[in-house]
Design a binder for these strands. Structure first.
Length: 295
DNA sequence: AATCGTTCCTGATAGC
DNA sequence: TGCTATCAGGAACGAT
């Protein structure tokens, strides 16, 4: 599932000069599942509003991909669980846009194409999304930045302003550490994979009550969060299941995972058996010997 | 105001 | 073999 490193990989790809996405204009949109577009909730209006708009900037906030368009409009793409953008090419045939490249289709994970943006530079951006949970929204940029959903997002863990003091402040919230780490209103970008990996590395039990964690352990979680996210970006993300980059390629961080989806295997630190439990309806993987709950 | 449960989806897998 | 049931999982939403 795309978390911060995966979304960052996509955004860096979109900003790659060679792709010429910046400065291109939207020509049209195809979809076989209009419900992906949440705003406006009318697909024809969405198409009309998007047509001819020039891409000025592509950036990321948490797990959201944001295309700032000329004229004070922003296109938001959230890939949710199984969505990923793929860049390909199109050509015109019999008066219609035809995809001549939808990213490598020999990979089953790239076959669930439900939406394609056609650009005026001959490129297309296709959204592959097995579970159709992704969301697409078109906003007035000012309105978006003033919106509740944007303003309530927590700090970016890799930004300079995210100091240990800041981390302690946002984490002064009750609950189990894993759930709090994954709360986008506390910190953005961490999902199930990286929460498990961060807590394993920091040797903290996922169900540990946040308010009971010692300062030295908070510091460990803080440093580990930055460290793991940075390493995962370098590896271009994790592809345990769906994630692919813009070219359809897998990320390499899966090789570095130590507990996520390793139930029953040996802990790489102490050889105890990795366990899986449910926390708030989500699976959590951890080492019962290294990550002690305490009181 | 904060928190909990439900909902959206469908491929993979298990069970019969 | 082929059917049905169960599950994963981010985040918005309604209910409490």
């Amino acid at each position: 599932m795309p978390e911060l490193p995966e979304v960052e990989t996509i955004v860096r790809g979109l900003n790659n000069r060679a792709l010429n996405i910046l400065g291109a204009r939207f020509l049209g949109v195809w979809t076989d599942f209009k419900k992906l577009i949440k705003k406006p909730n009318n697909f024809e209006k969405f198409k009309k509003d998007l047509k001819g708009k020039k891409i000025e900037k592509v950036w990321r906030r948490g797990k959201n991909i944001i295309f700032d368009l000329k004229g004070g409009i922003s296109l938001l793409v959230h890939q949710k669980l199984t969505g990923h953008l793929l860049c390909g090419k199109w050509k015109k045939a019999k008066g219609q846009w035809r995809s001549i490249e939808r990213g490598p289709l020999d990979d089953p994970m790239n076959r669930f194409l439900h939406l394609i943006f056609y650009l005026d530079n001959g490129k297309q951006l296709a959204l592959s999304d097995l579970r159709k949970f992704a969301k697409i929204e078109l906003w007035e940029t000012d309105e978006f930045k003033e919106s509740r959903e944007f303003k309530s997002l927590g700090p970016e863990p890799l930004e300079k302003y995210f100091t240990f003091e800041k981390f302690k402040k946002v984490l002064s919230k009750k609950g189990k550490i894993k759930q709090v780490l994954m709360d986008q209103n506390v910190i953005v970008g961490i999902g199930n994979i990286y929460a498990d990996e961060i807590l394993f590395e920091a040797k903290i039990h996922p169900e540990k009550d946040v308010l009971k964690i010692l300062e030295k352990d908070l510091k460990k979680i803080y440093l580990t969060t930055k460290n793991i996210l940075k390493k995962a970006i370098k590896a271009r993300g994790t592809s345990t299941s769906d994630f692919r980059d813009l070219e359809g390629k897998k990320g390499l961080f899966g090789k570095s995972l130590r507990v996520y989806r390793k139930t029953g295997q040996k802990c790489p630190r102490c050889s105890a058996t990795i366990r899986r439990i449910k926390i708030g309806g989500r699976s959590a993987h951890f080492c019962p010997a290294c990550q002690i709950l305490g009181d």
